[in-house]
Design a protein around this nucleic acid. Structure first.
Lengths: 211, 211
DNA sequence: CGACTTATTCATCATGTGCTGAATATGACA
DNA sequence: TGTCATATTCAGCACATGATGAATAAGTCG
């Protein structure tokens, strides 16, 4: 009964059998912490605590906080790829395809976790957030705008429409996954899709354009 | 020529003529800092520096950081009042009225400054953010949902529609005023209104409802 | 004048942060 | 076995933060 829970672990390399990979314990913990608190408020110490590891070990593996973040946020799915795939349908089904694809993707916890982190970091103006938001927005907006322009729409108009689409999508994702506001948070993907698709389709079609 | 710019001011109460009200210098500075960096990242020291004042003076006037925040964010305009006024039009013009009213209000720098602060704080989960977001969301959602329910729509359906409206508005305000993403950021209110109104109207009308 | 109150700065504390350099224990390989 | 690399903790630095208490200067009111 002496030392069931080994508590503060001994120094030095643990015996092989000691199970549990510390490195992935760290990335797992970091993933959760970043999603919950955003880049700035998540501290290396709290991440280390959650991973049951000394905070110096984080530096041993990832150099810096930014390094850890980069690793955690190294997208397991390229968002622009996903979106681009969703754009491969007829004009009149574009809205629904986009909305459904994005909402479905966010149901995967890995995507949701990273997505929330990105949304959080995007509004705080940390360096990490700025990078991500520039990259992401350009990629995504570009993909959507490109698809619209293919339909013969002038480029700046296409850009505007794409931005409006992102506006609606970002707002919805924010309420559903960051603020977790009911009734949006627990609505089935199908139902939410039905509600959002018309609005997005409208933006894509240029509803409200002076002509 | 000795001491034109008095630089580091002397201790103790300044002579009457010394002009410049320190207290409002602090709230002004705080307003800017909170809007730029959000609650957490804005530090009392940077606020004090901007107001050209010792940071202890901030505590003298406002007790704590939260106190300062409360004072700064004590809305000079009640958002629910504004929104409620915008709701006083015929059903088919509701969307445009809402969008135009909100966008116009945000053109005032005082509203914009507070609004950005609130949006920023709402996504970071600081205590201040949580309070504000609960209050604001309930107020606003309630106002819109109430107006919808007046038209004879069932209450939970009205709630959902109102949330969807907020979704679109929040996304747009985010892109325009927080991320300041072009072309949205510098679009005239009229043009943006024309684009957003149909989407919002659709949500209000329950487009996409299974029936 | 004298007693108070107010406005202001100064010096300092306790805490939390990212990060570093050393110490120690194990494994891998010659 | 000896040597090196790796995994891990420990102790600490330098810095920024919010906060506090005392010191000092001016105004107010009797």
């Amino acid at each position: 009964m002496a030392d069931v829970n080994p508590g503060p672990r001994r120094r030095g390399r643990p015996r092989k059998a000691s199970s549990s990979d510390a490195r992935s314990a760290i990335t797992d913990a970091a993933s959760v912490e970043f999603a919950e608190k955003g880049y700035d408020k998540a501290s290396l110490r709290s991440i280390a605590r959650r991973a049951q590891v000394d905070s110096a070990l984080v530096h041993h593996y990832f150099e810096s906080k930014a390094g850890l973040f980069a690793e955690v946020v190294r997208l397991p799915v390229r968002p622009d790829r996903i979106v681009r795939a969703a754009l491969d349908v007829s004009d009149d089904r574009l809205g629904e395809s986009l909305v459904r694809t994005v909402l479905s993707a966010w149901e995967q916890t890995s995507v949701k976790s990273i997505g929330v982190t990105v949304l959080r970091s995007a509004v705080s103006d940390s360096a990490a957030g700025r990078l991500i938001r520039q990259f992401l927005l350009r990629e995504l907006k570009g993909a959507v705008a490109g698809r619209i322009a293919d339909g013969g729409v002038d480029r700046t108009e296409a850009d505007l429409r794409a931005t409006l689409v992102l506006t609606q999508m970002a707002g919805a994702l924010m309420f559903r996954h960051v603020l977790e506001l009911e009734p949006l948070a627990s609505m089935p993907v199908d139902d939410l899709t039905a509600r959002l698709a018309p609005a997005v389709q409208g933006h894509l079609d240029g509803v409200g354009d002076s002509m």
